[in-house]
Design a protein around this nucleic acid. Structure first.
Lengths: 208, 208
DNA sequence: ACCTGAACACCGTTCAAGT
DNA sequence: ACCTGAACACCGTTCAAGT
């Protein structure tokens, strides 16, 4: 973890402050949410001065983008693992992915919020978008598998993947942001997701 | 608009500062987005001291909640008007609503973001939730009409409405937040929405 | 090269004081 | 009752200075 320290006693504070800041930031976001996230407090956690981060991140926004990127990497891994463990890589795999997607959001709202924060310009942080795209690719490939298995054209794979992704994202967002107050969320969310996948599946079967 | 002013010359600044603050806030949010929204700047716009708002709103969050509430009222009106103008109040009406929904978001991202801001606790601002619920009701009623027109049970109206709402919300959010980079958004968003409504419609026809 | 200390502008909130 | 002025704590960012 810690890079080989320079040997001049204890010279400065860290071997890898950049990484340490990211770790402290992830903790802080999980604790207080993106709203309560403060550069100053990250510095306190990492034990450095408030000016230190600027050597490694251009500004607060850049650090948030790094948090989001790390979040999407984790997201990708969880989706990929879930798909691996599913025996079926087509329609049942899709259900697995969809459930995993929403569970991730519910299990960690603050991080999910940072990942999809509207404050983070995707044009400004291409790596953020690229990492999100990689996670999305797990869905994309599965949808492609579904189409192939159904003897359908794969030319609309992207739009169809967008369709199922947006639906999961919509449910997850509404759920996490407290808009689903008239149902027992914890119990019914899987049901909602299943319905979403089901209507999507029907859509595929009905498409050319 | 302006309440009857007390006659002691020009006594203080406003007849209705609360309303003036809300108007200034809406402008500011539309200009700079929720991130750039600042109490101090609202005060400057309204021409009052920075302490003045605290007589009318408990804190910054409460003012944001008021903005969001006003947003949902407008949202409700636009949805209701769109439905009125649609000759069909069932499936075609649903398409109209869905398109109106997403267009609203695209036409004014900052306000849409405040409305669905995760920082605004719905438990803390029941009026915010109630107003959102009223907008949602337009969808709810239309879904109910669809079910009735199809001779289906209406016992799952809520969950089904949630399904179409979340799908629209997911698409709108991804769109507004810059995640739809591989399609020409402006042109294809209506198409996406139509696909969403279509698969939803099939779902209804296939349900008990 | 990497970090500190001090400084600056700005913000949210409070409170005594004014009318 | 409604607003101001001044004050406080806190934050993001910069920059000269240290090692």
């Amino acid at each position: 973890m810690v890079k080989p320290e320079t040997r001049t006693g204890k010279s400065y504070h860290h071997g890898d402050l950049k990484e340490a800041l990211l770790r402290a930031s992830l903790e802080l976001v999980d604790e207080k949410g993106p709203h309560g996230f403060t550069l100053a407090e990250v510095c306190r956690k990492a034990g450095v001065s408030v000016a230190a981060p600027y050597r490694h991140y251009r500004d607060k926004e850049a650090l948030l983008a790094a948090i989001a990127t790390a979040g999407f990497e984790l997201y990708h891994d969880q989706l990929a693992r879930a798909l691996e463990q599913s025996e079926d890589k087509t329609f049942k795999g899709l259900t697995t992915l969809a459930r995993t997607y929403v569970r991730f959001a519910i299990a960690n709202p603050p991080r999910y919020r940072v990942m999809f924060s509207s404050d983070l310009s995707k044009a400004k942080f291409p790596e953020l978008y690229a990492t999100a795209r990689r996670a999305f690719d797990v869905v994309f490939c599965t949808v492609e598998n579904c189409l192939i298995a159904s003897n359908k054209s794969t030319e609309n794979t992207y739009v169809l993947s967008l369709l199922i992704w947006s639906h999961c994202h919509g449910i997850a967002t509404l759920c996490v942001d407290g808009f689903l107050r008239e149902i027992a969320v914890e119990e019914q969310v899987d049901h909602l997701i299943d319905l979403a996948v089901e209507s999507f599946t029907n859509k595929i079967h009905g498409s050319p």
